[in-house]
Structures are given as structure tokens and as C-alpha cells.
Simulated scan of single mutants.
Amino acid sequence: MKQALNKVSSIEEVDHLFFDGMTLMYGGFGGVGSPPTLIEAIKQKGVSQLKLIGNDTGFPHIGIGKIVSLGRVSHIITSHIGSNPIAGQLMTDGRMAVEFSPQGILAERIRAGGMGLPGILSDIAIDNDIVQKGKVFCEIAEKRYMVETALTADISIVYAKKADTFGNLIFDKSARNTNPLCAMAGDITIAEVEEIVPVGSLQAEEIITPGVFVDYIIQSEGVDWKWAWQ
């Protein structure tokens, strides 16, 4: 029997993966569940012209907001930006393009990307001129739908409560949110975790994301979002 692959790495070992203009997908909701150590590493490397895909823009100093607020993002696909006023100003000034996608549709587009599907069909806001712009339509059983394209990324960064060395992941409560979906949709997926345990330590039924979707595991150095909702 072959020994399970050990995917535990350090920030230094994955730093070379981040590059200017990359498409980066991230888990989290208002910063909760976003991987702070990885986000800080991307910030420190100084990469720019990023194309982001994620639920929101965090807060100015929490989550992905740390990078957004520095003006290093050229384009973002997200469900809302209201918790980060700097993101709103960047959009208004024309310095960051924002594509809004309803939260459920956004999650399904990410899931479709992870499943290898080209997109999903939706009739949400189908009569809205803003939502319709640039969309392809089709008709099934005499009902009209919009085609919402699937989403993938060069790199997905996710945050988990626990992982074994193969990359099987467990998420904690609301920090689970979009993380399992994002883990599936990246060409490369890096998981930042609070606790790393040997293969065989996790019960099969508690694993949310199988290790086959994870390429690298990073030990978290602590979170910056625990006070965000206090």
C-alpha cells in the first residue's frame, strides 16, 4: 500500500504561485472564513491587477479587503461590496470593475466550475435590463432562462478548521460558507488550516472537502476576523 501524499507546505514554498494578473478565488463571508495568512502573503508579495472571485470584499482591514483596499484588484465578481467602503469608492472612480452576481447564483457558478460544467441556467431577474446585459438566453419547456457562466480560477485559497496531511478538510460553522465550493474550482487550491493531523485521524463522515481537490496545506498563523461581527 502506497503512503498517502503529504501536502503540508510553508508560505515560502507557495509564494511563487502568486503572480500579477492572476484570477484568485477565495472563501469567506465578510472576512469570516477567509484565509488570513495566505491573504497577508499575497499582500506582502505586492501582486497587482488581480481578478478576484468571492462572496464579498471583506472589510478594509479584514479578509480580502486588505488587498482590495490597496487598489491591487482590477476586476471582481462578487455578491456585494457594502462592508468595504473603499471597494465602493474604487468602483465609483473606475479603478476596479465590479460584476455583481446574486449570492446563490454566484455559489452555483463556482460549483459548476468545480464540477467541470460550462454554466447554469437561471430565471432570476430575467426581466431586469441590468442583469440581462451580455447574457445568453435559451428556452426549455417553453420557459426562458439566462445562461450564467461557470467560474474557475488560477488559484483558490480556502480556510479550514482541520486537515489531514492529504488535504481532507473540515470546516467550522459559518466559516464553511463558500470554502468547499472554492476548493473545487481552482486550478491550484491552497488550504490554510488551524490544525493539521495525520492521515487516518479524521472520520470519513466528517470530511467536507476530499483531499483530491487540495494541492497545498498551510498552517494558519491566526485569524483577523473573529471580532468582525461583534
Results as ranks from 00 to 15, higher is better:
Val68Arg: 04
Val68Met: 08
Ser69Ile: 10
Ser69Cys: 10
Leu70Asp: 07
Gly71Pro: 07
Gly71Gln: 04
Gly71Phe: 08
Gly71Arg: 05
Arg72Pro: 01
Val73His: 01
Ser74Arg: 14
Ser74Asn: 12
His75Ser: 08
Ile76Val: 15
Ile76Leu: 06
Ile76Glu: 04
Ile77Lys: 10
Ile77Trp: 04
Thr78Met: 03
Ser79Lys: 05
Ser79Pro: 06
His80Met: 13
His80Trp: 14
Ile81Leu: 13
Gly82Pro: 00
Ser83Ile: 11
Pro85His: 05
Pro85Val: 04
Ile86His: 08
Gly88Glu: 13
Gly88Ala: 09
Gln89Ala: 11
Gln89Pro: 01
Gln89Phe: 07
Gln89Trp: 11
Leu90Ala: 04
Met91Ala: 15
Thr92Ala: 15
Gly94Met: 12
Met96Pro: 06
Met96Gly: 01
Met96Phe: 08
Ala97Trp: 04
Ala97Ile: 13
Val98Phe: 05
Glu99Ala: 02
Phe100Tyr: 15
Ser101Phe: 08
Pro102Thr: 12
Pro102Lys: 11
Gln103Asp: 14
Gln103Phe: 04
Gly104Arg: 07
Gly104Tyr: 09
Gly104Asp: 07
Gly104Cys: 03
Gly104Asn: 12
Ile105Trp: 09
Ile105Arg: 13
Leu106Thr: 01
Ala107Ile: 11
Ala107Lys: 06
Ala107Leu: 14
Glu108Trp: 04
Glu108Gly: 01
Arg109Asn: 06
Arg109Ala: 09
Ile110Phe: 07
Ile110Asn: 04
Ile110Arg: 07
Arg111Val: 14
Gly113His: 06
Gly113Lys: 08
Gly113Thr: 07
Gly114Phe: 13
Gly114Cys: 12
Met115Ser: 07
Leu117Tyr: 14
Pro118Arg: 06
Leu121Trp: 04
Leu121Lys: 02
Leu121Asn: 00
